[in-house]
Design a protein around this nucleic acid. Structure first.
Lengths: 169, 169
DNA sequence: TATTGTTATACTCTATAACTATA
DNA sequence: TATAGTTATAGAGTATAACAATA
């Protein structure tokens, strides 16, 4: 404990009297003006939702980015590798290892791309199709859970607002 | 080769651009069902907002987590280190290096905590007070920009929905 | 000369275990 | 024993540069 030991002479901290054994009061989560910042609220909400999603996908051994990749290829089979990465907002360099893992697990594959021998056409395997179907069921149940919290209108309105942020910023 | 690409990438640094009616209309990447997932929309929106915030704070050499720490200490001076970390949702182990940096820059400091010699009371320095005031002005301008995109009601409604997600999930 | 997939690398954030000094 | 701060470390995620094959 030899860190910031600079012999500061003042030690005024008689503000919060924390009696021993007292339950953690509301003040523990009081972040003041931060609570009114969109960026801060966005980060906290995203972490909460992702924590939940990661746990729900754990049984399938699927990370969010892996699920997104499979779901994208189900929707648009035959995408070029660079197109898939761009659509998901992932650098193409980082997409390589991500897709390598999906391919090693037999969930997706690279096929030759007819018109350009530099490119690969990405496709799900039958096993990939089955896994993404199961994952999307889990996902749908998760969305229903969110609807219980936000209300049906609230969830729909949230999606509109979030898309506006992502697209118009 | 890589030089042209690099110059192209770093070239968009416009801050106050974005006229109200002009739709940037970036890549209309069709991600199918992903677009209707709260988790996916949350991630894309958070990345967009943070990209912007990071650029706007760059002049102050402040990362979002550093700003949050300073803003929290302005609101609740004398917080114990573990309390500050918990309020921000940061592991106490990871908070150490974060606060070390703020202290090394003379923006905040650890003071002895009267009733428990294991703890530190965290405070802003005068320089920290000045910096966080400037950062909060930048932040306020950013919120006004978001309000132009979402509408005043939209921004307020977004905050309500995001807090519900973070607290009730 | 430019682009696609790739490798290598580095940096940030996050998560966990274990140590120390206090309680 | 338990807790606060700390250290060390490992794992994701992300960003950039460079290279070979191909356009």
């Amino acid at each position: 404990m030899a860190r910031a030991r600079e012999a500061k002479r003042h030690s005024y901290d008689e503000e919060d009297a924390l009696p021993d054994g007292a339950p953690p009061s509301i003040s523990a989560a009081d972040v003041g003006p931060l609570a009114d910042m969109v960026g801060y609220a966005l980060r906290r909400a995203q972490l909460a939702v992702f924590d939940r999603v990661i746990k729900e996908f754990a049984a399938l051994d699927l990370r969010p980015a892996q699920f997104s990749t499979l779901a994208l290829l189900k929707h648009r089979p035959g995408l070029k590798q660079s197109e898939a990465a761009a659509a998901l907002g992932i650098q193409r360099a980082n997409f390589v290892a991500l897709f390598d893992l999906l391919e090693a697990r037999g969930l997706a594959e690279r096929r030759p791309y007819a018109r350009d021998r530099r490119s690969h056409a990405l496709h799900l395997t039958p096993a990939g199709e089955r896994l993404v179907a199961r994952a999307q069921e889990i996902e749908a149940a998760h969305e229903r859970k969110l609807e219980q919290i936000l209300g049906s209108d609230g969830r729909a309105q949230l999606l509109v607002l979030l898309r506006q942020l992502a697209e118009r910023l």
